[in-house]
């Protein structure tokens, strides 16, 4: 049997089809800001090793208007990332509990946010009051 003639449409600009696709790409794009922040931390670590003068230059850079603006972008990205990460979390972990009494998505969400609050407070406490 000869295959039927068909028409295949391309994928160019597929994200224009639905806002859900653009939200997805925004979520994925947060990784660019997160990667940039990791590089910023790495640079800081390098400057810390290089000595007080280099460290001060790094501190000046991240606290300059441009540095603060970029950090504002990273903050927004980090929040979008956290919200989407925890929202999708129940989809990625295997069913917990026993058949008939499976852990509800809401419990996982609540647990994740509680853990986030705890870790964040712990980290901030250490960074501000530690040493």
């Amino acid at each position: 049997m000869t295959p039927l003639p068909t028409w295949q449409r391309g994928m160019r600009g597929w994200w224009r089809r639905d806002p859900a696709f653009r939200r997805y790409l925004l979520r994925e794009a947060t990784s660019v800001a997160i990667g940039a922040y990791a590089l910023m931390l790495l640079a800081g670590l390098g400057c810390l090793v290089a000595g007080p003068a280099a460290w001060q230059r790094w501190e000046g850079l991240i606290l300059s208007p441009v540095g603060l603006l970029l950090q504002a972008v990273v903050f927004a990205a980090a929040v979008i990332h956290a919200v989407s990460w925890f929202r999708l979390m129940p989809l990625t972990i295997p069913p917990l509990g026993r058949p008939g009494r499976r852990l509800a998505d809401g419990a996982i969400h609540a647990g994740a946010w509680a853990a986030s609050a705890l870790c964040s407070l712990g980290l901030l406490g250490w960074l501000v009051y530690g040493a």
């Binding site: 999708l88 129940p90 989809l91 990625t92 972990i93 295997p94 069913p95």
Partner: peptide
């Protein structure tokens, strides 16, 4: 059906 859940739980597995 929630295929996204089906697939991503199997990623973990």
């Amino acid at each position: 059906v929630d295929p996204a859940r089906a697939i991503n739980r199997n990623k973990t597995a």
